[in-house]
């Protein structure tokens, strides 16, 4: 469903010169699984997912989403994904219902199926009471719900969540994780990026540990623990990252 091939992204940076945000990142995620991108802040997760959602162009390499190339068929890619991140806000001067309806229409849904789908979503996400509330008046949790409804209104086979639990309280974060798990059970292919170990452990079927734009390790939580002979994911993570830091330091010397 998602196939990232040698994704590389270089930004121009005044201070550091060309800055490599992503280096040769390749991975595959299939339907019915949550693929986790785990890494500290600035590891390149957001860049990778923005490339998958076609808002950024890779410097080299490409990715196939549902068989469409993100570089040459961006419009088709966007039709088949639902994208949600801490950066994708809701409109202040639109109600929850209007917002979801607007995106449903942009995804090309007909009136009647859209209405039915929205009724279902609003019911399932418990959003009936904020139906006519303007975005500006919503709490963070409410906004997050609207964002989820917006991302899945067209029932896409691929979902991309970028640090979606950022800034949420425990209750809201928990219900979001539940929603993601449900979507996985419906057979969606989900890419989920986070820097929180527990979320990755609980939710992800496979995890890629990313640091400085490079993929350091990939596998299920058990596989990673066994491979690196550590009691839990946090230790694996810490181990991998400090090793890479050392390598980079010696390499620079």
């Amino acid at each position: 469903m998602i196939e990232a091939r040698h994704l590389t992204k270089v930004y121009a940076d005044l201070h550091r010169g060309p800055f490599v945000a992503l280096e040769n990142l390749s991975f595959t995620a299939t339907r019915g699984e949550v693929y986790g991108l785990l890494g500290p802040n600035g590891a390149g997760k957001t860049t990778a997912l923005r490339i998958l959602s076609t808002v950024l162009q890779p410097t080299h390499g490409t990715a196939l989403v549902n068989g469409f190339d993100v570089v040459t068929r961006p419009a088709q890619v966007r039709k088949t994904i639902g994208f949600m991140s801490a950066n994708t806000a809701v409109y202040d001067r639109m109600t929850a219902w209007e917002m979801v309806e607007y995106f449903g229409r942009l995804y090309g849904m007909e009136d009647e199926p859209l209405r039915q789908r929205m009724e279902l979503l609003f019911e399932r996400l418990k959003m009936q009471e904020i139906r006519d509330l303007l975005g500006a008046k919503m709490s963070t949790g409410m906004k997050q719900k609207v964002s989820i409804a917006r991302a899945i209104v067209h029932d896409p086979p691929v979902l991309i969540f970028d640090e979606a639990t950022n800034g949420l309280d425990v209750l809201v974060a928990r219900s979001l994780l539940q929603a993601v798990a449900e979507l996985r059970d419906q057979g969606k292919c989900i890419v989920f990026s986070t820097h929180i170990m527990r979320e990755a452990e609980r939710l992800c079927d496979r995890i890629a540990i990313v640091h400085h734009g490079r993929l350091l390790a990939e596998g299920s939580v058990e596989e990673l623990r066994d491979r690196y002979n550590q009691p839990d994911l946090e230790e694996v993570f810490f181990d991998l990252i400090s090793n890479q830091e050392k390598e980079l330091a010696t390499g620079n010397r």
Partner: peptide, 14 residues
């Protein structure tokens, strides 16, 4: 500034 542009850019609208 409000972050809604990225939302719109990820929609299929060209």
């Amino acid at each position: 500034e409000r972050g809604t542009l990225e939302t719109l850019l990820t929609s299929p609208a060209l």
